[in-house]
């Protein structure tokens, strides 16, 4: 068995339901839909046997939750965009991988658990990604949550645990991150034809990030996560985590062929469909001094140090 897990593709896709439910209402939403469709075709042409999703619209509190229901069935409706329609789903999950991922998390010090309950509310982002990228359930999937309190160390370890489980089971994997770039939406209802990125600043940052993605510089984006959070992320959670997880899961380097298939506004937020294909050789001119992390030791209990 190889020492490296076989990751055939990495995808970064937006969580909003518009490309699924209303691609005809805005040309940009339609282009995002086309990009999803292109990715779906490429996944079908690959011989991947697992789609692993990290969704920023599935928050967790008690550690990290991993979807393990072999056949979740429900009809999902988005909290904000319920008027666009319902999203009935029936997915095929890889319960064996989910359990293996949980074990790998625990072996690296993370608190994790699988969830397998009828009627469990699979989040908008995961539903959109699975329905568009894997509509016929051609390959089994797995979804991991985004813990609201976690930060860099925990996310990187969570990504490494995903690799451990891939390696152990010999999986060929499509890694999918579901996240916006800039995530500030308009706070009022808009005519679909009026959609645009919320501000010029958000747009400039998005384009800079896309330039990095296009050059395959995933690890560099990971290292820039704190800047990205400060500049273009509404502070719903403590950090911009998806790049940390994605980079750690995909090997912590810049050796990819990057392709930005679409970049459009989704009610003001920045939505992009991006593909990263592992390649030889990479680029990068940045140096970083934050430690790499192999094992999560938990909080440092500063309040217990007798400082008060």
């Amino acid at each position: 068995m190889s020492e490296e897990p076989e990751i055939v593709l990495g995808l970064y896709v937006p969580p909003h339901p518009h490309p699924l439910l209303a691609p005809e209402q805005n040309e940009g939403w339609g282009r995002l839909r086309d990009a999803f469709d292109t990715c779906r075709q490429r996944i079908e042409e690959s011989d991947a046997d697992l789609m692993l999703i990290y969704s920023t619209t599935w928050p967790s509190i008690v550690g990290h939750q991993i979807q393990a229901h072999p056949k979740p069935v429900f009809t999902h409706v988005d909290d904000d965009f319920h008027f666009l329609g319902s999203m009935p789903y029936e997915f095929h999950m890889d319960a064996e991988y989910a359990e293996c991922y949980r074990e790998a998390c625990e072996a690296r010090g993370l608190h994790a658990r699988t969830v397998a309950y009828d009627g469990f509310p699979i989040d908008t982002g995961s539903v959109v990604a699975l329905k568009l990228l894997n509509p016929d359930n051609r390959i089994p999937a797995c979804i991991v949550s985004s813990n609201v309190y976690s930060n860099r160390a925990e996310q990187i370890v969570l990504g490494k645990a995903a690799r451990d489980a891939m390696l152990k089971l010999g999986k060929k994997v499509v890694v999918v991150v579901v996240a916006s770039l800039s995530n500030r939406m308009f706070t009022e209802h808009i005519d679909p034809s009026d959609d645009r990125i919320h501000s010029a600043k958000d747009d400039e940052w998005n384009r800079k990030i896309l330039e990095f993605f296009d050059n395959g510089r995933l690890e560099d984006i990971s290292q820039l996560s704190r800047d990205i959070q400060g500049q273009i992320r509404v502070s719903k959670v403590v950090a911009y985590k998806p790049a940390w997880w994605m980079a750690a899961t995909m090997g912590q380097h810049n050796n990819y062929d990057g392709e930005v298939l679409a970049y459009e506004a989704l009610h003001g937020a920045g939505g992009a469909v991006i593909q990263l294909t592992p390649a030889k050789g990479g680029v990068g001119d940045k140096e970083f001094d934050e430690d790499d992390v192999e094992y999560y030791h938990g909080d440092r209990s500063v309040l217990d140090k007798g400082m008060i």
Binding site: W58, P59, S60, I61, V62, D79, D80, F81, H82, V115, Y117, D118, G119, F120, P121, D123, M185, F186, T187, E188, H189, H267
Partner: peptide, 29 residues
């Protein structure tokens, strides 16, 4: 029920379903 685009109100007479807590599904179904 978190909405970023305005404030929303339930507008149908009846809702019958199962509610599974996304954070504590082991406790609330």
């Amino acid at each position: 029920w978190q909405t970023y685009v305005g404030t929303h109100f339930l507008g149908l007479e009846r809702f019958q379903n199962i509610s599974v807590d996304p954070i504590f599904p082991n406790l609330f179904r």
